[in-house]
Amino acid sequence: MKNERNKFTKGKIINIVIAVLIYILIMAALNGGMLSRQMSSLLVPICVNVMLAVSLNLITGFLGELTLGHAGFMSIGAYAGSLLTIYLDLPMYVEFIIAILVGGAVAAFFGFLIGVPVLRLRGDYLAIVTLAFGEIIKSVINVIKITNGAKGLNDIPSYSTFRNFTIVYILVILTIILIVNLVNSRHGRAIRSIRDNYIAAESVGIPVSKFKVMAFVISAFFAGVAGVVYAHNVGIIKPTTFDYNKSIEILVIVVLGGMGNIRGSIIAATILTLLPEMLRGADNLRMLIYAIVLIAMMLFNGSGAKERLISSKYFPKFLKRQKGVE
């Protein structure tokens, strides 16, 4: 396996180079004033969606379970983190890092609470229960006092706007690295084996329940972190921001990017965050175009048209690659 190890490190170096290049490009564009205000303000939302998509991919792509409540975890992180930074009085970076960790941890705790009962369910039933949990979280936040009900939280300090892009970028890269590391480990192998065949996974000694809950907890943690970043970018959060439409938006990103494909999630998150903004000029047509693109891409991916194209001789060879984990 010497070969594999070499290949592995080579891929790793390429990824690092790409990550650094993207950072340099964005910073140069930002500082050089090459980005319009609109484009600059999209940088953080893209990062948030990347974090959400990569973390959801852990449950949907690698564990193989459909969930429609990811926005619920995001909202818990957003509220927990924002309440901290609003009420704490510490230096910005200390406060923000605490908020990130606490937001993630509280979301992870809810991931655990939701993951345990959900073990009894599979497929569409699991999907609807996660949707229900998301809506319950939303309704409860809407009613309780500390979250300021339907009015939501204002005055959240702007710690993660594009002016502080470096810290947001570091968080995104960390999220990606940690999840990729997880997927390519014995723990990730266990999670993937449950997706492929849970009966066989049990038969080779993998405690299926433990790893299902683990995937939920870890995924919820990063969704919570994304929520904290989101809140400290926009400054205002309301319960309605995190309804099931947001969950579906993230799911769409994951499915379009490719289940179990981290790089795909990143690219799809970027495109699908930019696309609606690009179409802002054609306001009414925006949703329509988004819908048509979505349907067309799913039909292209799923109806065999893609396979026919790839196997035809006109398809450039360098774009073909073996399916697998990055």
Binding site: N181, L182, S185, R186, H187, G188, R189, A190, R192, S193, R195, D196, N197, I199, A200, A201, S203, V204, G205, I206, G260, K323, G324
Partner: peptide, 27 residues
């Protein structure tokens, strides 16, 4: 009942799960 979307090597490595262990922090 194989792990179809995993490599042949990973199929066997999944079965080594309980024999060669390391923690989540190591991961």
């Amino acid at each position: 009942r194989l792990f179809h979307e995993m490599t042949v090597l990973d199929n066997v490595k999944a079965a080594l799960h309980n024999q060669m262990t390391y923690s989540l922090a190591d991961t």
